[in-house]
């Protein structure tokens, strides 16, 4: 069921996920046309959808502001534009993590840390800066394709390194959440992105997409116009039930990014080795975190995360096909 709508307000709106946004084009035509934005807002109002607006690092003008404010929404904006968008989710690039002075005065923020592979060794340090100011930090590895053993090992090292800080902050009355460590212990089932199922995206051209990444990869991959018939061919392949690797997996915090699936394996329902390995580094780190949380006397009510023998659920899926009876129970 659709729950929210992502609206990319400009071609150069900040990326908050596994894709690169476009730059500004000469001669304008970068902003979503006002009539399309109006159509998106109407669509949201008529379908009980909350809207996430993706902002660029510049002001859009009064007409845009007025339309944005006419619907329940969340703003996602680059950190540099924080003063223009109080309360927005702030996107921090790992290449430009704000210093103490920039963070002064901030508290209870929602951050998205877009991490580059090259900056992996700096992850713990970046989180140490952001977490005390945060209500929640989502870490997103921006360039997943091509990760190998060295990256998986470094990622694990960094998550273990930040663990004491997260444990220390967990004693606060309002402990910050860190998606890659604190989500999995709190989840009893998959909590994925669900692009195409729980949300759709309006691109800066005013057309509908599965998510922003599909627009930036190829604007021709549109699902249609706002208000028209939404054509998602083989929609069932977006569902967990029809994903042979994911449906047996318990890395519940995984994004299960269908864009990366499509880009790396050519199939919407099949994750790449990189996605699975990274999600299982997080799962294992979360398991260790939960153990330490319990040692400190906390973590009551959280379910165990079992130790498993594989690092990639693909191996388990190949070894044993799900039975027809088990499939029917899903």
């Amino acid at each position: 069921m659709l729950k929210y709508l992502l609206v990319v307000l400009a071609r150069d709106a900040t990326s908050f996920c596994h894709y690169e946004a476009g730059g500004r084009r000469r001669g304008g035509a970068d902003l979503i046309p006002l009539d399309r934005l109006e159509a998106a807002v109407l669509f949201a109002l008529k379908n009980n959808l909350k809207v996430n607006f993706l902002y660029p690092g510049r002001r859009l003008g009064r007409a845009y502001d007025k339309l944005v404010e006419s619907v329940d929404h969340v703003k996602i904006a680059p950190f540099a534009a924080r003063s223009s968008h109080p309360g927005a989710i702030l996107v921090v690039e790992s290449s430009a993590v704000p210093g103490a002075a920039d963070l002064a005065g901030l508290r209870g923020e929602n951050f998205i840390l877009r991490l580059r592979r090259a900056d992996l060794p700096l992850l713990a340090a970046a989180l140490k800066r952001l977490l005390p100011r945060a209500k929640r930090v989502n870490v997103v590895l921006a360039d997943v394709a091509g990760c190998g053993e060295a990256e998986y090992a470094e990622y694990r090292r960094q998550l273990e390194k930040i663990m004491p800080e997260v444990l220390k902050l967990s004693a606060r009355p309002d402990p910050p959440e860190l998606n890659v460590l604190t989500d999995r212990p709190a989840l009893g089932r998959m909590n994925n992105c669900e692009a195409g199922l729980a949300h759709l995206t309006v691109g800066p051209n005013g057309r509908l997409y599965l998510c922003p990444a599909f627009f930036y990869a190829d604007p021709r991959q549109s699902l249609g116009e706002i208000g028209g018939e939404i054509a998602i061919g083989n929609r069932r392949l977006l569902e967990l039930k029809y994903a042979p690797i994911c449906r047996i997996c318990d890395a519940y915090q995984c994004r299960r990014c269908v864009f990366l699936n499509r880009a790396l394996t050519l199939e919407l329902n099949t994750p790449s080795a990189e996605q699975c390995r990274l999600a299982h580094v997080e799962r294992e780190a979360s398991r260790l975190y939960l153990g330490r949380l319990r040692e400190s006397g906390a973590g009551e009510g959280l379910a165990d995360i079992p130790e498993i023998a594989y690092q990639d659920p693909f191996d388990a899926a190949v070894e044993k096909k799900m039975s027809i009876a088990d499939f029917k129970k899903l």
């Binding site: 994903a243 042979p244 050519l266 329902n269 994750p271 790449s272 899926a317 027809i324 499939f327």
Partner: peptide
């Protein structure tokens, strides 16, 4: 390309078949 082989190696009957076939 190990990633491109993953869909083939995990393909099963139920995932690709209509319900009437299952």
């Amino acid at each position: 390309d190990r990633n491109r082989l993953r869909p083939f190696l995990t393909l099963d009957m139920v995932t690709q078949s209509p319900e009437e076939c299952v």
